[in-house]
Amino acid sequence: MNKIKKRAYAGTLESSDAFIEIEPIEEDEIRIELQSSVEEMYGDDIRDLIAKVIKEMDISYISVRVQDKGALDYVIKARLQAAILRANDDKKIKWDKL
């Protein structure tokens, strides 16, 4: 499993969006800290989605902090992927993993 190279972030705090910060950690785990305007109804779904996107990109050893402003699934996905690509300075994008 891969680590991310450095701390990175993507997104905004605006309505319908999500602000996502990621950081490499020493432990082999996906640590998720979520603050969501729809926590009660969708909190667990969002956490599942985040974990899934991270695994699809072959990442582990990561801490994720999300401020969710009622973002659709694909918005969270887009922001998280953007953050991970930024963290790894990835120029060669593997589109089939996104």
Partner: peptide
Amino acid sequence: EGLILSIMTRLINIAYSKGIK
């Protein structure tokens, strides 16, 4: 209108890009 959220996003971006976390 949510203007504060846009302002905050931009401020955080500036701080982060200066390495202030």
